[in-house]
Write a protein that binds this DNA or RNA. Sequence first.
DNA 1: ACCATATAGACAGGTTACCTGACTATTGAG
DNA 2: CTCAATAGTCAGGTAACCTGTCTATATGGT
Lengths: 156, 156
Amino acid sequence: MVKRDDGVGGPAAAWEVATGVLRMSAALVDGVQTGVLRRGFDDVRPAHGFAFSLISRGPTTAARLAEHLGITKQATAELVQHLVDRGYVERRPDPDDGRSRLLVLTARGVACTRAAEEAATETVEGWRTRLGDEGFAALRSALSAAGTSGPLRPSW
Amino acid sequence: MVKRDDGVGGPAAAWEVATGVLRMSAALVDGVQTGVLRRGFDDVRPAHGFAFSLISRGPTTAARLAEHLGITKQATAELVQHLVDRGYVERRPDPDDGRSRLLVLTARGVACTRAAEEAATETVEGWRTRLGDEGFAALRSALSAAGTSGPLRPSW
DNA sequence: ACCATATAGACAGGTTACCTGACTATTGAG
DNA sequence: CTCAATAGTCAGGTAACCTGTCTATATGGT
């Protein structure tokens, strides 16, 4: 008689899921990175993508971005400067608060964000091809049902 | 008539899966990190875990570890020194090759590896609780069917 | 047996992405 | 009107990576 390890539960299954998640995430990050590179953006790192994902939702401040990324204001200022220098982001005065400056994407920043979304979609569509519609739908609903929430940020 | 975006395919679904994978991976890394910390190991980073995962499979050399982690030999040497200094890893002469030294886990290294596995299992079991056995099994098989392969290493 | 080349690892030095701490300017509440 | 809180900057430090160079050992061709 087989043990339940071969079915649903047990540490072996947990470990398999853990490594699967890590591999899938690594494959996604890598796919986005190379896809963005292939589209001509060779001066952005994955961490910048997480910054884009906030800024593209509308003008933000460096302080909010720092909280979103989970890093200090100083590190954020450096990251923003990098993006400004390379023409992805623009700083403009905040009409409502003389201390802060609003961060907005330039046209190039929007293009890069779109490139990242396309690359992510490509990678994920590759999984859908392998899984079939049914398996893909199962993956999708499992991911959302697992309820891992919080801001999207680099993990290590 | 609803569009197929609400069913299986389309860019929206792809994006949802992408962010779900990233969030789940981040939650796992975080869960392992805090779980390992709670078990008394406060001087290891996630990257060390990927080193442990290779070394725990049997004695290795720094060169093989470098390739496994996808970093240079120099960075690997530094990482290994860190682990040796803190009593997780031991260097011993390679009987078959006078140039290389074999890396093996100490008792402390084994204990830390086990702590990481326990923490990972805890985190994954949390998902199983939310998903139910059926959803969890679906997640498991989707992850393995997606066929993302390659060595387990940090992605950014 | 010998030499050329490849490989394992160490040493020196540089880059960068983060950190802490101290500072200025502006806001907002009592 | 002051005073604490907040947005951002400046100065300096740390650690994890990098490239380039070196020695010692191994290996394959002549």
